[in-house]
Structure formats: C-alpha cells, structure tokens
C-alpha cells in the first residue's frame, strides 16, 4: 500500500517533503472549546497532529474522540494508542471504530505505567489494574494485519481493511543504547511506516544513533521524525535531563537558557528549537520533525515558520 493514499502525513512523506507533526493534548474534561483553541492556534502549521492517549496515566478525553474533533475541524490527527488500558479485543475494536470515523494515522505505544500520575503532580490512578496484553511492537503488527490482510490478531477476518499509516516511537538514547537500534528495527520489521522520537537535544549523540539505524537500512524503510521540545526554562531542561528517560540535554543549552533574562526566555527557547530543527534537517535519513511545546503551544507557529517549514505542502 502506498503511504500517499492513506493519509496526508503519508502523502507528504511519500512526496519526499520534510514532514512536520505537532502535538495536541486532549483536555481533562469534555471541553471542546479548549481543543478548538489549540486547533485554531495550530491550523496550517503541521501535516498531522498527534493526539495523546492519557499520557502520564492521567485521565483525559479519549484520543479517539479528540482525534475526531480535530478531524472535523479540518486537521489530520495522529491518534496515539497505548497498550496500558486495553486488551487486544478493545484495541482492535477501537482501531476499527477510529478507522470508520476517518482517522488515518495511529502511533503505537506501550504507555506510561499507571503509577506515573502526571509525574506526581496529580493523584492519578496508581491503584488501577493495567492490561499490557500486547506490547507496542505487537500492536504495530496488529495494525498491519488489519490494514494489509484485513485480519485480526487471531486470524479472524474483518469485513474491510483499516487504512492506517502506522507509527511507532523511538527513544534512541535510553539505556541500553546498544539495543535501541535493534528495537527500532523490530518496530519497522513489524510494520511501522513512521517513527517519532523522544525529545532530542544532544544532536551529536542523536546523529550517531541515526547513523546506526541508517547502517541497518532502517531509514530507507521508515520515516524518522525526531522530537523537538521547545525549552521554556533551564529548570525544565534540567528536569528533563535528570528525570525523563532517554533525554540528554547538553550543559551548553541549559546554561544558555539559564543566562537568558526572564523577559527573553520564550525567545531564547524558540531560538534553541529553531536551531535544533535546522541541525536535524541536516542528518541524512531524517524525514521530518515532531515539534512540541508543553503547555505553550502558542510558540509553535513561530518555531515552525522560522525553521523554514511553512507553508505546509
């Protein structure tokens, strides 16, 4: 199946254009207006919009519902789906439902453990039961089966195939680093069409990781979109460096943010993001970026514009 026929993101990747995705986190209630504000802010800046699935194990509007709202507003969602809360019956049922609603991209994730609870900022539901019936790589293969063979995981038929562009995540700098390329290969062997990565700040280390993937021929088989998170403060960068697995922030970047006067912090953060994008564009095998600005989406249009990535094809 040609990627270009599946979704807009697939079309952009297929045409050889450099792709841009951004993230729209669903609200913690049935607040369509909150979603619409983000939609209006981000319309036209990306080829597709990732919709998170109860990230950090915090209850939010479902990724399917939020994806449909985004779709109705004329934007293309990348519905994220984790294996934490659904078994293979529910996952497939939701995938068929999402497909019927017109959702065409799905990012397959294991999901944060239910003990995450917004990194301790909220109570969350640490006492809940998790599922993890299948893992993210198996979910990729389930999607591939539904799409290419119109078959469920068990082998039973579905009446119609579900046309999804299949995504997976990559955390190239989490230990054991030596295995992370192999894990990426497994995701691509299972059927991933595109890969979005954990936030990249250390370009040197990331470049080496991509080179390893390239040596295995992986960059020819799937489109890799490095994650760029616009920094807001030195504290945020330090927090991510210390606490977010697989995120290495070079000291120079932290120092630069720390040295910025308060009124210039947003601007410096944007500068850093623009520079990071410029550097990943140069890496052979990179075919797009996944740009995030956590709880500060308003900076994204400027970041993407200054990176030279507007207008979108």
């Amino acid at each position: 199946m040609s990627l270009g026929n599946v979704s807009n993101l697939g079309r952009v990747l297929d045409s050889g254009s450099f792709a841009v995705t951004v993230e729209i986190g669903p609200p913690r209630g049935p607040d369509i207006e909150a979603l619409k504000r983000k939609i209006n802010l981000l319309k036209g800046v990306a080829d597709a919009y990732n919709v998170t699935d109860n990230q950090t194990a915090v209850v939010r509007m479902s990724s399917i519902a939020a994806s449909k709202i985004i779709l109705d507003a004329g934007l293309e969602p990348v519905m994220q789906m984790t294996c934490r809360d659904r078994n293979r019956i529910a996952l497939q049922s939701d995938l068929i439902g999402a497909s019927a609603l017109g959702i065409r991209n799905c990012l397959c994730l294991s999901g944060d453990h239910q003990s995450a609870g917004a990194s301790g900022k909220l109570k969350g539901h640490a006492g809940s039961k998790n599922v993890f019936d299948i893992d993210s790589i198996q979910l990729v293969s389930v999607l591939k089966g539904l799409r290419d063979d119109a078959k469920q995981e068990s082998g039973d038929a579905v009446t119609h195939p579900t046309p999804f562009l299949i995504g997976a995540a990559w955390t190239p700098l989490a230990p054991p680093v030596s295995f992370r390329t192999i894990r990426l290969a497994k995701k691509i062997n299972a059927g991933a069409d595109f890969i979005q990565t954990q936030a990249v700040y250390d370009i040197t280390k990331f470049k080496e990781a991509v080179a390893r993937a390239r040596d295995m021929g992986l960059t020819d088989r799937a489109a890799i979109l490095p994650g760029i998170i616009v920094p807001r403060s030195a504290m945020m960068l330090e927090y991510m460096h210390k606490n977010v697995p697989g995120v290495d922030v070079p000291e120079a970047i932290i120092k630069r943010m720390a040295a910025a006067p308060k009124e210039n912090r947003v601007a410096i953060g944007i500068d850093i993001a623009v520079e990071l994008i410029a550097r990943v564009i140069e890496i052979p095998g990179i075919r797009g970026v996944h740009v995030q600005a956590i709880e500060a989406e308003e900076v994204l249009p400027e970041v993407i514009k200054r990176a030279g990535l507007l207008p979108r094809p």
Partner: peptide, 26 residues
Amino acid sequence: SKSLLNGPCGGTRSSGKCEISEELDC
C-alpha cells in the same frame, strides 16, 4: 512492569532501572 515481550520500553532510567522504581532493574 509492563510484561513486554519485545525489549525495553522507552522508560528505562539512565541508571538502567525501571521507570516505576529506582529499586527495580529493567
């Protein structure tokens, strides 16, 4: 902690421990 069958999730800490506890090996 997620009974994964295809390798470590992206939550492995820099110490090599599990995302849910510094006391647990990945």
